[in-house]
């Protein structure tokens, strides 16, 4: 659905995007990560045709960005980083205004607006002026606006970043509900827990290049050493020697009855670790694999590149 090749973009002397390449297939939710100022919004603005780029080839749903921009704009929706609306309009009026720009049929319009207001839970506030909306409400209105032309591809620039936990939950829920509509979503953020919940695949942008790109699951397996947390019924601080001889174990930490085993090879650990433990004369109370955090991958990758 989205195919970007050798994309370059500079502002005066500053090279923001050096050589960006990625492909996103239909129905996929792609998480675009990067620190502040990495160039996420710049990439989004280029892909939605708002700003020009220095060089590269961009194809969206088979249409060429330079030659067939008008066709592209009809099948995409965009929620900018800080969506701005005319504050003196009500939410409903704004949606109607956008429908008018699109030249949509009037009857069709009002039905569609009702449906969208329902989806983003703004039915009650729809007759209030946008100037009085909270940040979360404006973000939800922005999502409704981006969906107005039934887009095949949706670009969401930090849809949940500026919101409180409550507002973030609402937005994440809405995005999850879009997943079932088979909309391809390109989502930029630096809130990693949201990415873990909704994205199929992620790309990390750092210093103008995509330094890492893979499915979430594979990234976790590749980048994070799995940790096994084991709790014994008695003190376990003298048990280290039972484990030290295996080369697939990286290190061991003990604290009274608790032990954490960091392994290099998850495959071997899964098969052998339980076996070893069962030979120890200390009863095991619990045995858990710690879930790896995307945050750790992110920091690891970004720091390695510096």
């Amino acid at each position: 659905m989205i195919d970007v090749k050798n994309l370059k973009k500079s502002y005066k002397d500053q090279e923001v995007l050096k050589d960006i390449n990625f492909k996103i297939s239909k129905g996929e939710i792609y998480g675009f990560l990067g620190q502040n100022g990495a160039g996420k919004s710049t990439t989004m603005n280029i892909l939605t045709g708002l700003i020009k780029y220095n060089s590269g080839d961009i194809t969206i749903a088979g249409f060429d960005m330079k030659k067939e921009y008008k066709k592209i704009i009809n099948i995409i929706g965009y929620l900018p980083e800080n969506p701005k609306f005319y504050p003196y309009m009500t939410g409903r009026e704004y949606l109607k205004f956008i429908c008018e720009i699109k030249g949509l049929d009037k009857l069709e319009t009002s039905k569609k607006i009702d449906k969208l207001l329902e989806l983003v839970k703004l039915n009650k506030a729809s007759k209030r002026k946008i100037g009085g909306y909270s940040r979360g409400m404006r973000q939800r209105l922005g999502i409704a606006v981006s969906l107005i032309n039934d887009p095949k591809i949706l670009f969401l620039d930090e849809p949940s970043s500026a919101l409180d936990p409550e507002g973030r939950k609402d937005v994440v829920k809405i995005i999850e509900s879009l997943k079932s509509l088979k909309i391809t979503i390109f989502l930029s953020t630096h809130i990693l827990s949201d990415v873990e919940r909704i994205c199929d695949r992620i790309g990390i942008l750092n210093e103008g290049n995509i330094v890492l790109e893979d499915s979430l699951e594979r990234l976790k397996n590749k980048y994070i050493l799995p940790v096994y947390d084991i709790e014994f019924s008695n003190n376990c601080e003298d048990l280290n020697n039972n484990f030290n001889k295996y080369d697939w174990i990286e290190k061991i930490k003990t604290n009274n009855k608790k032990m954490s085993i960091y392994v290099k090879n998850r495959f071997k650990a899964d098969r052998k670790l339980l076996n070893i433990i069962s030979n120890i004369e200390n009863t095991v109370l619990s045995y858990k694999i710690r879930k790896s955090k995307l945050e750790e991958i992110f920091l690891q990758v970004v720091n390695n590149n510096e």
């Binding site: 708002l50 900018p80 609306f85 956008i98 720009i101 981006s146 032309n149």
Partner: peptide, 13 residues
């Protein structure tokens, strides 16, 4: 300045 025109632009203004 207020970027009010951004959303309409993305809708083909």
């Amino acid at each position: 300045k207020d970027k009010n025109i951004v959303i309409p632009l993305t809708k083909g203004l």
